[in-house]
Every structure is written in C-alpha cells, then in structure tokens.
C-alpha cells in the first residue's frame, strides 16, 4: 500500500486518494487548436522512474496534490498542493 503524506492531513493510505494524472501538463487555453489539445490530452510519456503526478485527497481534505513518485518502486520523494497559494501556505508553515 502506498502511503502519501498529505501536507494538510498527514501520512495516509493511498486508498484515501484518487489518482489524477500527469502533473506536468500545461493545459492549453480553451480556444487553443485541436492539435494543441490533442497533444495535451492524449500524448503521455511512459516514465520509468520518478514522475510528477496529481492525486486528489478525495476521502480527506479534498486537496489536489502533486506527488513525485517512482513508477518502479512507488517511492515518494515529495508531496505538495497543486494550487500555488496553498503551496505557499504549506511552505510558510514548515
């Protein structure tokens, strides 16, 4: 069982969270072209090793998180809120 250290709730089982997806995508603007959107939605790297991915603490504080996780070992290097304002709050409270 993966354990994720939610910056708000503390370390919890991954069953409290829902997996989101690739956290490194810069979604194009809504009026961007079909091509740009296709790139953003369908093209994914298949990373062996650490990757940034989003997780939703759906059975907890409801925060969306960026988790840096190894796809090989499940080791987690870092967890931080997706929202920059929340990131700052967490940093300031360290």
């Amino acid at each position: 069982m993966i354990r994720i250290n939610c910056p708000y709730c503390g370390e919890r089982d991954h069953s409290e969270f829902s997996y989101g997806g690739d956290a490194t995508i810069n979604y194009p603007s809504l009026d961007a072209s079909e091509k740009e959107w296709t790139e953003a939605i369908f093209f994914r790297k298949n990373i062996k090793g650490f990757q940034f991915e989003t997780w939703h603490h759906s059975n907890g504080c409801r925060m969306w998180l960026v988790v840096e996780r190894s796809t090989v070992t499940h080791e987690i290097k870092s967890v931080k809120p997706c929202h920059p304002d929340l990131q700052r709050v967490v940093e300031n409270n360290k």
Binding site: S18, G20, A23, Y27, T54, H56, S58, R62, M63, W64, P81, C82, H83, P84, D85, L86
Partner: peptide, 17 residues
C-alpha cells in the same frame, strides 16, 4: 455527482488557480 465534484475541484486547484 462525485466525479463532477472532483472535476470542478481539479479545475480550480490545478488549471484555473
């Protein structure tokens, strides 16, 4: 219902901050 709620939160917390 649950999916829509998560989706709205995702948009507000990750894309349209």
């Amino acid at each position: 219902a649950a999916k829509v709620m998560s989706w709205l939160e995702e948009l507000l917390q990750t894309r349209w901050t």
